[in-house]
Computed example of a mutant assay.
Amino acid sequence: MTTPTDLTEKAQSVADTHPAHPEPAGVSIHGLSKRYHAGAVALDHIDLDCPAGEITVLVGPSGCGKTTLLRSIAGLEQPTNGSIRIGGHDVTHTEPQRRGVAMVFQNYALYPDKTARENIAFPLRMARVTKAERNNRIDAVAQLLRLEGLLDRKPAELSGGQRQRVGIGRALVRGPSVLLMDEPLSNLDAQLRVEMRAELLALQRDLGTTMVYVTHDQVEALTLGSTVVVMNGGKISQAGIPEQVYTRPENAFVAGFLGGMNLIDGHVDTRHLISGEARISLPRHLHSFHGRRITLGIRPESLSRGRASDDELGATGPVVLTELLGSDRMIHIGGYSTALRMREEHHTPVGDSVAVRADAADIHVFLPDRDGERAQLP
């Protein structure tokens, strides 16, 4: 497998072959909205800055607006309102080919009757780059992406990972200031996705290209992103560095989408959260929510076996499901509005009653009457 050192040397080769390779450009989006004639709202007043030379990942469920936002940056969608600036220049109404961006699509979008070399060369031919320059750029990109021995094959003769590399090569060969990627790994098998993810990250770091990357895969988002932007319903639910978005979600949607946090609805009765037919004991600092409905958040990895102290969260219930995840298991504890999930190493039979606890510092509280926003804890 290609090492980071190999990629650095190959990336330098590409840079040397692109004497006029532009500097990476930041993308700034202000007040961007996209409404269709039927009244559907795809984007609702988006404000976002994508730093130059970094990876900004747009993540969210299907229909949340992430691909529409990416296509708007590319110039393939015309926004209803708002502005898009690339490298400080307003490109809101600029033609796609004049924006200095290149896009890699989910379905590769390769010409089936052309070889890999011809597919990579296509944008250069359209730009009337000389044959010698085309060949130099293609050879450099092919070396970078490990396509040297595959350039004379047509897409049908390539594997899924190889076709994806050709699609990436066709974008890179143009020397874009911004590289846009629309779920480029979604058609690959699980193992190849992991390998390609590592290669993409090393490639971006070595070339220094600004990348805006769309995915619905939370692991991909947290692994690749310098900035992670969680979208829902055409809006940005939260944006920030991966660690911040994961450890301190601003609302219940982000908490549940990234990392699958346990979200238990109920009302607080002095020292307990009443949820379904069961109770969860609360640490002292949450007693101030007495009489209010809240959504309690706790990640599966934050729970452990044992009886809780007064300064900890405590729950008891029957195991209703156990899932083998490989090196550990996920058990589901029933009786609450939603089953409470906990990771553990050992098998626990369905039906066994278990007591679990969590540190106060690992507990999150969200407010249903405020669209699930994060509560300010005392």
Rank of each mutant, 00 (worst) to 15 (best):
A278R: 04
G75S: 12
I168M: 14
V268Q: 06
A221D: 10
L188K: 06
R370T: 15
P61Y: 03
A171I: 05
D206L: 00
D352N: 13
Y108A: 02
A38G: 14
S72A: 13
G351H: 08
S159C: 05
V178Y: 05
A25N: 02
I138K: 07
L188P: 01
E199Y: 07
R374W: 00
L222Q: 02
E23T: 14
V245R: 10
H93L: 13
L325E: 09
P283N: 09
H30Y: 00
G82H: 12
H267E: 13
V245H: 10
L32C: 03
D359E: 15
M261Q: 11
R343L: 15
L258T: 04
H37S: 15
P79G: 10
Y213P: 00
L69R: 11
A308C: 11
L180F: 09
H216I: 02
E277G: 12
L367T: 12
D310N: 14
V129N: 01
H285Y: 13
Y36N: 04
R343A: 08
H287C: 07
G39S: 07
L158A: 03
D44E: 15
D113V: 01
V228G: 07
R248L: 03
T247L: 13
D44M: 06
D16E: 15
P155I: 13
G167T: 04
P155M: 13
S177F: 00
V173G: 07
A142H: 08
I333W: 01
H89T: 14
T92R: 03
V101K: 00
G82C: 12
V350P: 01
E9Q: 15
K10M: 14
R174Y: 02
E54M: 13
G233L: 04
P368N: 09
M1L: 07
T295P: 05
T67M: 08
T5I: 14
L222S: 01
G317L: 01
V320L: 00
D217R: 03
A15W: 09
E95M: 06
V178G: 07
G65C: 13
L158Y: 02
L324G: 00
L303M: 05
Q143G: 15
G351V: 08
L58S: 03
V141L: 06
D90A: 03
V320C: 05
T295M: 13
G372V: 08
T247M: 12
E23C: 00
R85S: 14
A375W: 05
L367N: 14
E77H: 10
M231D: 08
D16K: 14
V350T: 11
V214S: 02
D352S: 14
P61I: 04
Y213H: 06
L313H: 07
S159I: 03
V129M: 12
I331V: 15
L325C: 04
G351Y: 10
E77V: 11
S309H: 09
L224P: 02
H30I: 01
L201C: 09
A127H: 01
L144S: 05
L207T: 09
T67L: 09
A40C: 00
A202E: 12
